[in-house]
Nucleic acid binder design. Structure first.
Length: 743
DNA sequence: AGCACGCCGACT
DNA sequence: GTCGGCGTGCTC
């Protein structure tokens, strides 16, 4: 009987394909192999092995690929994610497999040059400059040397050809130097020590030796090293309470135990600042994995992770799929961040997938946040997650003083957006030589453009949204789908010249107002459309953190994961943005965002100030923010959702229908209206009067499906669709998932 | 993902 | 009469 291998191919295929294993090839589950597929060869992973009679019509496996095999937990993660997200298994595999691309393979090894001692045949001024710069005889990077000499790279190349410089292949710098868990560090506070102990050792252990005073995490209490208690833990600590230092202890413990640790962060929070904090604790910077790490380095890091050499990886959400050899800990920093949602391709929430991976790997998962998501909070309260709290700021730091500015009483003059009390506060802050942040969660210059002559409002061709003016780009841009058109000189509707008017503020407009008020101050606008891309933005954030700026005008990204140690005043410009949207998470999101951003104020032991411009000072979200009563906010929000029939959890299924399909259906009187009558346990999200949102040329329904624990959403939806006429369009699961169902 | 097949518009 | 648009379907 021939050996047959079930091979899962990283394409949008839901089932593994069968291939014959040729004589002499020994395969194990998880091996990466090459197989024929149609006219070409592809890679795949052995998902199963069997001996069967027949199967003579099957094509043979070509051979094994030189790549580390996929571990059992990682294969189970692929199965799990595919099932949970309704994605084809092959698509889930593709996230894990990400093979070395050819571009990376072709990338040449780094070359260093040094003086050979031989004089150049011809000595031009440019060549002399290079030789002077390299006169120390040390090894120099080619481009670095050219730069230092102020000449172009070709001069250096010319000298190499001439023999005056010799090229030496340099060992690339280590991708993942080992972190030292016992590197000298600043002592933790008692609260931090207790939290770290509880994190590592499990509940109750923190108080295990009360007689000894304060047990120290690195002291004898936890030696010899045993693996940390598995399972999810919510680490909740107010801004400035030192959560990072606490989970660093869990990371240190994991490293001492000889296992690997993964720290997940929202992409934007992966800055030099964080890497330096890590270096201060562990002596070296951690291996960093994010979209900016490319080519050879990416591949080498993957290999180091698979070999178990990379002990600690800090990465954005895709790092969750790295092939760790022995994963001992996952930390999800800023657990509430919506950046953990992947919304194209396979839809998933990295925080929840981290919990799943942790369970499959048998390791702890630390969810850290100052403002946890509702679902994590409820999970902690109901005992599904352990809950460790840091209720106080570190080192006697106090929470900022937050006050509302009632815009109905103290509003700005017409066409302006900064209220007099806020302007005065900024003035005082500048006079004291301190940094201020103005927060407005709206990119661009103005959210709406209209023609003063005919009243025409500019909207997106693909989406049901207004076009946002971006003055810097001289364009009108759709924030939904990215569609952009140049800002017209004359109204496209009535032809009137120069009569378009910008309505409402975006950060660009605020920056304009600020520069008029404070013309000689250093002002910077930070938003996701920062010119120069993510890398530049990261650098800019680090510069701001270093104090190289007087006034920052920023969108939500300034609220995320950064410390700005020089910041003492935060002005929130329109606290009410987002409160009126139909999103069931509107209140939660706004509360988290405002609490994060106002929490940025404060310097050392001096509390900062936050001034919140609002038209609704008594709104529950604003009131909770002003009083600092997060407990009450969470309790009220959960109660409100229950009263509205919305669970704190749910999975969202999205039915995506093209505009053409919808029109066709409506012409036949079908109207896809059955979506308005979802099955029991499911509900349609969105404003009742507009159940359809037009996004990227496609109508999108979202169904919030309440599922009981362990209910299989796929069969649930399949049942429902079987009873209803077959929908036009496809059903996909979006990413508001239900953590109950996987614990 | 590729790469076929397939059915309707403007061209050597 | 063909070239070519991308919609749909298949790859063990």
């Amino acid at each position: 009987m021939p050996d047959v291998a079930e091979i899962l191919i990283p394409l949008a295929l839901d089932t593994a394909y069968s291939y014959v294993v040729p004589e002499g090839l020994r395969l194990a589950e998880g091996d990466v192999v090459q197989v024929p597929l149609g006219p070409r060869e592809t890679v795949g992973v052995v998902w199963g092995l069997a001996q069967t009679a027949g199967g003579s019509n099957l094509r043979p496996v070509t051979g094994r690929v030189d790549a580390p095999p996929l571990s059992e937990p990682l294969r189970r993660l692929v199965d799990w994610i595919a099932r949970y997200t309704l994605a084809p298994k092959g698509s889930a595999l593709a996230m894990v497999l990400r093979l070395p691309d050819e571009a990376a393979a072709r990338e040449t090894a780094r070359v260093g040059v040094r003086v050979s001692g031989k004089a150049p045949t011809r000595a031009t001024p440019a060549r002399r400059k290079v030789l002077e710069a390299a006169a120390d005889g040390a090894l120099h990077g080619k481009s670095a040397l050219a730069k230092a000499a102020g000449v172009s790279l070709s001069v250096v190349d010319g000298l190499i050809d001439d023999g005056a410089l010799e090229a030496v292949a340099v060992e690339p710098e280590a991708v993942a130097p080992p972190p030292d868990p016992d590197h000298p560090r600043v002592p933790l506070s008692d609260a931090q020590e207790a939290a770290a102990l509880e994190l590592i050792a499990g509940p109750g252990k923190a108080l295990a030796s009360p007689g000894e005073g304060n047990a120290r995490v690195s002291g004898s209490a936890l030696q010899p090293v045993e693996p940390a208690a598995p399972g999810p833990v919510l680490l909740e600590g107010v801004t400035g309470s030192g959560k990072t230092e606490v989970y660093f202890e869990a990371v240190a413990h994991c490293v001492r135990a000889g296992r690997q640790a993964l720290i997940l962060m929202p992409e934007i929070a992966l800055t030099a600042q964080f890497l330096d904090r890590f270096a201060a604790r562990f002596g070296v910077r951690p291996a960093a994995w994010h979209s900016g790490v490319g080519g050879r380095r990416r591949e080498r890091l993957r290999a180091a992770v698979a070999a178990g050499e990379a002990r600690v990886v800090v990465g954005a959400r895709s790092a969750l799929f790295l092939p760790f050899r022995q994963l001992g800990l996952i930390v999800v920093d800023e657990e509430h961040e919506s950046a953990y949602k992947q919304e194209d391709g396979v839809h998933y929430h990295a925080r929840d997938m981290a919990v799943v991976r942790g369970r499959l790997e048998g390791c702890p998962v630390v969810l850290a946040s100052a403002t946890p998501s509702i679902e994590s909070r409820v999970n902690a309260e109901r005992g599904r997650y352990r809950h460790v709290r840091l209720p106080e700021r570190f080192g006697g730091r106090r929470l900022p003083d937050i006050r509302a500015i009632d815009m109905r009483l103290d509003g700005p003059e017409r066409g302006r957006f900064l209220s007099p009390p806020l302007i005065n506060a900024i003035k005082a802050n500048l006079a004291a030589g301190e940094q201020s942040l103005l927060f407005l969660n709206r990119r661009g210059y103005a959210p709406l453009t209209l023609c003063r002559a005919c009243g025409h409002r500019y909207r997106c061709r693909n989406c049901s949204t207004w076009l946002v003016e971006h003055r810097f780009r001289k364009a009108l841009v759709c924030h939904q789908c990215g569609y952009a058109e140049p800002r017209p000189q004359a109204c496209t509707e009535c032809g009137t010249f120069d009569n378009l008017t910008a309505c409402g503020p975006g950060v660009e407009r605020i920056a304009e107002e600020v520069s008029e008020l404070f013309p000689d101050r250093r002002i910077i606008v930070l938003s996701s459309d920062f010119p120069g891309g993510a890398e530049r933005l990261r650098m800019e954030l680090d510069a701001v953190a270093a104090g190289e700026c007087d006034i920052v005008v920023g969108t939500q990204l300034v609220a995320k994961g950064h410390n700005f140690p020089h910041l003492t005043l935060v002005g929130v410009l329109d606290a009410d943005i987002g409160l009126t949207s139909g999103d069931p998470r509107a209140a939660e999101r706004t509360f988290q965002l405002l609490q994060q951003v106002t929490g940025r104020a404060g310097r050392g032991e001096r509390p900062g100030r936050a001034l919140v411009q609002t038209y609704q000072p008594t709104h529950p979200v604003i009131a909770a923010l002003l009083s600092g009563d997060a407990e009450r906010f969470y309790a009220e929000e959960v109660a409100a959702r229950e009263a509205a029939g919305l669970p704190p959890f749910g999975r969202l299924a999205a039915l995506i229908v093209s505009a053409a399909e919808r029109e066709a259906a409506e012409a036949q009187g079908q109207a896809l209206a059955r979506v308005a009558e979802p099955p029991p346990g499911a509900m349609v999200l969105g404003p009742a009067e507009a159940p359809l949102a037009l996004v990227r040329g496609r109508y999108r329904f979202r169904l919030l499906v309440k599922t009981e624990r362990n209910v299989d959403l796929q069969s649930y939806l399949r049942d429902w669709l079987a009873r209803a006429p077959k929908p036009r369009g496809s059903v996909r699961v979006a990413v508001d998932v239900d953590p109950q169902s996987f614990l």
